[in-house]
């Protein structure tokens, strides 16, 4: 009876936020995604899923950490700029999303000089979708199971030592 009650309460507690705010469930990770097309570098920034990082700084660095370019995302989390001239290293695009949130994306030097093939863009878009994907239910359940297994481990050790 006690176990049943504990399980029910566990489920309620774990799902309570979802019940209250079911329509605003999104992942919370900061992502910047960039690709090269027709002499331009395009970027898209999001907090995962469809939540865009708006009006936040994008800093472009070379591999020595020197700032090459600065910009800001628009209302849709997008920002694009012309490939800077005389670049002889990979480019690191750093997104500063405020309150300790930051992400970066590296564009290899080779991509800056070669023209993107017809296959490059769809492949890149697939990668972007993968990055923005919300956490699956399986991952959530696995996480909860791991927490309970660890708790059981601690319980076992405590019982053994006492």
């Amino acid at each position: 009876m006690k176990i049943k009650k504990t399980i029910i309460i566990s489920l309620i507690l774990a799902m309570f936020p979802a019940i209250v705010l079911i329509n605003v469930v999104f992942a919370h990770k900061v992502i910047i995604f960039a690709w090269v097309e027709d002499g331009m570098i395009y970027t898209e920034s999001s907090f995962g899923s469809k939540r865009k990082v708006r009006d936040c700084a994008i800093i472009v660095l070379n591999d020595k950490g020197m700032v090459i370019h600065k910009g800001q995302t628009d209302g849709h989390g997008n920002y694009s700029f012309k490939i800077p001239e005389n670049i002889e290293s990979d480019l690191i695009l750093k997104l500063e999303a405020g309150t300790g949130h930051q992400a970066q994306w590296k564009i290899p030097k080779d991509e800056l000089v070669t023209k993107a093939s017809e296959q490059d863009i769809p492949t890149a878009m697939k990668e972007k979708e993968k990055l923005e994907k919300s956490p699956s239910i399986l991952k959530i359940i696995t996480g909860i199971v791991i927490i309970f297994l660890l708790a059981m481990g601690v319980k076992f050790l405590k019982r053994k030592t006492s």
Binding site: T6, I9, S10, L13, A14, M15, F16, P17, A18, V20, L21, V24, V25, F26, A27, H28, V30, F47, R51, V53, R54, D55, C56, A97, G98, T99, H101, P135, I140, G143, I144, I147, F148, L150, A151, M152, V154, K155, K158
Partner: peptide
């Protein structure tokens, strides 16, 4: 210990709940 696990699970799931307030996340 079970209570610790229950509350750790609630904490683990809670961060998935996002509130959209202006440009902030």
């Amino acid at each position: 210990i079970v209570h610790v696990a229950i509350l750790a699970s609630a904490f683990f799931v809670a961060s998935l709940i996002h509130v959209n307030i202006g440009p902030a996340s």
